[in-house]
Design a protein around this nucleic acid. Sequence first.
DNA 1: TACCATGGGGCCTACACAAA
DNA 2: TTTGTGTAGGCCCCATGGTA
Length: 272
Amino acid sequence: LQKPGPADKYGNHWQYHSRSDRHSKVGSWGVALDLLATSSLLRRHVDDGKVVLGVNHTMTDFATGRKKDLDLVIARPTGAVPHTAKTFAGLADQYGIVLEPVEQGVLAALPAFPVNTVGAVLVALEAKACMTAHVKSLPRLYDELNSSHLCVHGASRQALAIGYVQVNAADQFLSPVVNNRLLGDTPAEVTEHRQPADTERVLKKVAEIPRRSASSESGFDGIGITVLDLRNDGGPVTIVDGPPAPQPGDSFHYGSMIVRMANEYDTTFAQV
DNA sequence: TACCATGGGGCCTACACAAA
DNA sequence: TTTGTGTAGGCCCCATGGTA
């Protein structure tokens, strides 16, 4: 859950705004929390001060020199962590993340996980949202995700590149771009979606993104997809469990991806 | 006619720096 | 120390033109 964002220039408070990277950061934060909850080795590394968090970390593809900012990375520290450093828990407040009691318990049980300058990257997270104009945004969604894993592995073959995609399955949507005025003065313009076809198209496109099973290959180490129902009108946001959302056992099922990535972390970085 | 690929554009956020 | 301003980069959205 996420609090509505700050007022845009018209005075509207949107749950989701395409021109902000807040939803990407929230998504990456959630993936990191679930990884921490699942991997005891990662928690131990945090406890031992062997890893730190990096936000908007710039990675450089050694082969091409291309740079890309990753939403969230888990990495080896480069030096002493100052006492004033932000923490993983602090980011939840900063991003306006509302946690369920279970999640609060998980977070409370974690050791302080500082945000600091990072060294060698162990895990790189990139989150993308496709909330409206599904088909139009397919090429860009593909390109941005594809360039993400290329850049991560261009910088470090061993790093785990994790992609997280949120797809909106709502039939209707209030676009902050289309509704460029203060709502309430005039009726909102509602964007109609062709569901479930739009959602299925996005899932099919994401399935085309390369994945890898060995560090010698090219592709994401894991991609998780969450299908949600977001009308963006201030009403409740629900997670869609049934089809077309990926089902347990599916390569893109979020829970399965987290378990797989936690196992991958445990085996790859046992010697850290 | 419907679908697809491309790239410009506007808004958001973070950050650095200057001025009060 | 606080506030204001400028800049850069990231986020899709969407108009446009090409293709099946």
